[in-house]
């Protein structure tokens, strides 16, 4: 028990250090930008008036030595102040919080879809290694792997929305819809299909490959041979001995990959006009609203750190062989 508490505490400490490093990285990026850091903070020159710039310079202590500037910036962020978007006339933290649920819904759905489809494909390939199924799965996952996310999204709109008119192409709810409760949930789910499948494709390929490799590794191990020699039927052998052990490493790897889904969300949300933080980041890019971009980077990094922490702890619980403090 003590060991688990210690492990959790250590993990939290590590996560906190990573977040602190990301905030510092943001600070370095602002300093790297050509020109006056105040104009970076305010958004590209021309957007902000002189008075606001002067106020920014004072607020961030731009006349102070660098380490004091860094301290001011970091302590501001740690108190939850992500700055103010001059363009949108709103605090950045409010902008992001407002958009976060849509992104979490999209990335969460894409992650689950990719994991289920990927593991199923990888298992089918790994258990039939060298046969036709294996070949088809490797070709399909190779193609998923090489497809630009934003392009396949556009092509999906072209096929499923424009030509076939099966699925909605844009947004999260039907325009003018005043549905509530289950009807609203169904409407959102309907809009979620294309973006979530698009975002999940690449990771489906990643998980399929990982699962296949993992199964090939496990199925030649001694305990599997023993189980087979004992006369265990194929079904239970696959379920209880091969899959259960092959899926363990997928948990951690999936956790690491999941964080990168957020990057793909920027592209997916831009293509499908999904109102999440990815779309927010795209608008901020177009308007050179750096304050918002830095905020999105920070929040997505925190999401990754939290997610990695959770998978790490889950892995420790699932696989008792891993020492709690290792």
């Amino acid at each position: 028990m003590m060991r688990i508490v210690l492990a959790v505490a250590l993990r939290l400490l590590k996560a906190a250090a990573v977040v602190l490093a990301i905030v510092l990285l943001n600070f370095v990026l602002i300093r790297l930008a050509p020109g006056d850091p105040a104009s970076v903070i305010a958004g590209q020159a021309g957007a902000a008036d002189e008075q606001f710039m002067a106020q920014l310079r004072e607020q961030f202590g731009l006349d102070q030595p660098l380490y004091i500037q860094a301290y001011t910036y970091v302590s501001g962020i740690l108190q939850g102040d992500l700055g103010y978007s001059y363009r949108q006339a709103m605090p950045v933290s409010d902008l992001i919080l407002e958009r976060l649920p849509a992104t979490l819904l999209l990335t969460g759905t894409a992650f689950v879809l990719a994991l289920v489809a990927g593991v199923a494909m990888g298992a089918a390939a790994g258990l039939n290694a060298g046969k036709a199924t294996d070949f088809i799965v490797s070709v399909v996952s190779l193609i998923f792997y090489a497809t630009p996310l934003f392009w396949i999204g556009l092509m999906a709109i072209l096929l499923f929305s424009v030509t076939l008119d099966w699925l909605p192409a844009y947004g999260m709810v039907s325009t003018g819809s005043r549905a509530t409760g289950w009807a609203r949930a169904a409407d959102i789910a309907w809009h979620l299909v294309l973006p979530a499948v698009t975002l999940g494709l690449f990771y489906t390929a990643v998980y399929a490959r990982m699962t296949r490799a993992s199964i090939l590794e496990v199925r030649d191990m001694d305990f599997v041979r023993t189980a087979r020699a004992k006369g265990l039927r194929r079904g239970p052998l696959i379920r209880r001995h091969i899959l259960r052990n092959a899926l363990l490493p997928i948990v951690t790897l999936a956790g690491i990959q999941a964080g990168q889904l957020v990057g793909g969300a920027i592209l997916t949300e831009t293509v499908f006009a999904w109102p999440g933080i990815g779309r927010l980041a795209f608008d901020a890019l177009v308007q050179r609203d750096y304050q918002v971009l830095l905020g999105v980077f920070l929040i997505t990094s925190v999401m990754v750190v939290v997610f990695n922490m959770i998978t790490d702890l889950v892995y420790r619980l699932v696989d008792p062989r891993i020492g709690a403090t290792a």
Partner: peptide, 20 residues
């Protein structure tokens, strides 16, 4: 590890945007 943890695509975008 730190550079592997941060969301790489978002970071790359941010760098390109800020460096022009």
């Amino acid at each position: 590890e730190f550079f592997q943890t941060i969301p790489t695509f978002v970071f790359a975008l941010l760098m390109v945007a800020i460096l022009a």
